[in-house]
C-alpha cells in the first residue's frame, strides 16, 4: 500500500539499507537506496536528511556521500541515542523513512580560486566529506587545501583509509590529531587547533569550513583568526534540537535563523554574537 505523498514535507519516503559500513567502534555508515528508483538522490554538500526507524523515531543525519553516482545516499551515524541505535540494528534490505535533503550547503562555489581549510572534530568529518569530494572534482579550481582533523582517540578516526588517496592523488595537506594516544599512535596528540600553524595557506585568500562540537568550532575559529583569516571567511555548522527540518516546529531557532532551513552552515561573523551568549 505505497501511498507516499511527494509534496508533504512531513511524510517520510521509503528507502532501504543497501550497505552498511563500520567506520569505528561506535560509528557506521548506512548506504540507502530509494524504493522508488525514479527518485533523485541529489544533494548539496552540507545538507542532511531526517531518518526514521519504525516505531522508534526520527533523527537528523548529515549526508556523507557520495558526490558523483546517484541512486543511493550515504549517512554516517554515531550510535549513541535510541534512534541511532535502532538505525545501527538495521539489516541489509530493511526499510527506513527518509525526508530531505534539507538545509544549505558549504561554500564550495565561494571557495573557488582560494585556499581551503577544512577543520573537523569527531563525527564532524561526515558532513564535510562531500565538500572534500566536491573540491576534488574540480581540484584545479582551488589553491592549497588542508584537512585538519581531531578526534578523541585513534580508534575514533573516520574515513582514515581515504586519507592517503586524498594526500597523494589530490595533493591536499591532511593533518590528524587525537586528544590522547597510546604507544601505537605515532601521530599528533593535542587538540585540533594546534594543527593550524602546521599547514600552509594564504590567510588573505582562504575559506575555512569547520564542523564538530560547538566548543571545538569556537576555538578553531579563534585560532584561524589568530592565523589571519577574517571571520567572514569562516563557515561552521550548528546543531540544535530539530523536529520538522522545514521551519514549522520552531525547535532549531538560533537567533535570526532557523538552523534547518537557513543553516546548518553559517558564516561565522553572522552568528558569533549568539554563539558567545550562554544558553542561547
Amino acid at each position: 500500500m505505497e501511498n507516499f505523498s511527494p509534496t508533504d514535507p512531513m511524510i517520510p519516503r521509503s528507502y532501504r539499507v543497501k550497505r552498511k559500513i563500520r567506520e569505528s567502534h561506535d560509528t557506521f555508515t548506512l548506504d540507502l537506496q530509494p524504493d522508488n528508483l525514479e527518485e533523485k538522490t541529489n544533494f548539496a554538500p552540507g545538507q542532511f536528511n531526517m531518518l526514521y526507524t519504525f516505531g522508534v523515531g526520527e533523527v537528523p543525519i548529515s549526508i556523507s556521500g557520495p558526490m558523483k553516482e546517484s541512486g543511493h545516499i550515504l549517512h554516517t551515524i554515531r550510535g549513541v541515542g535510541n534512534v541511532t541505535q535502532a538505525l545501527n540494528n538495521l539489516k541489509i534490505g530493511q526499510k527506513v523513512g527518509l525526508r530531505g535533503p534539507f538545509g544549505n550547503a558549504w561554500p564550495i562555489e565561494e571557495a573557488k580560486g582560494k585556499d581551503v581549510i577544512i577543520m573537523a572534530g569527531g563525527i564532524g568529518l561526515a558532513p564535510l566529506r562531500p565538500a572534500v569530494y566536491s573540491l576534488f572534482s574540480q581540484r584545479q579550481q582551488y589553491g592549497d587545501i588542508a584537512l585538519l582533523y581531531g578526534s578523541r582517540k585513534q580508534e575514533d578516526l573516520l574515513f582514515h583509509k581515504e586519507f592517503e588517496t586524498w594526500r597523494g592523488k589530490y595533493g591536499i595537506q591532511v593533518k590528524v590529531t587525537v586528544d590522547t594516544g597510546d604507544r601505537s599512535w605515532k601521530g599528533n596528540v593535542g587538540v585540533v587547533t594546534t594543527l593550524v600553524p602546521r599547514v600552509s595557506f594564504d590567510p588573505s585568500n582562504c575559506i575555512a569550513m569547520i564542523c564538530g562540537p560547538e566548543v571545538m568550532m569556537r576555538f578553531s575559529a579563534l585560532e584561524l583568526t589568530h592565523a589571519g583569516l577574517t571571520e567572514d571567511k569562516i563557515f561552521i555548522t550548528m546543531e540544535r534540537n530539530m523536529k520538522c527540518a522545514v521551519g514549522f516546529c520552531g525547535h532549531c531557532q538560533f537567533g535570526p535563523a532557523f538552523i534547518c532551513k537557513d543553516g546548518p552552515v553559517f558564516r561565522y561573523d553572522q552568528i558569533k554574537p549568539f554563539i558567545s551568549t550562554r544558553e542561547f
Binding site: 505523498s5 512531513m10 534490505g93
Partner: peptide, 16 residues
C-alpha cells in the same frame, strides 16, 4: 496525526 505506519514483516508502510 501526521501519518501512521503499519509493519509488514520486516517492512513497514507509511500512510499519510
Amino acid at each position: 496525526k501526521l501519518w501512521q505506519a503499519q509493519k509488514e514483516g520486516l517492512d513497514f508502510d507509511i500512510i499519510p
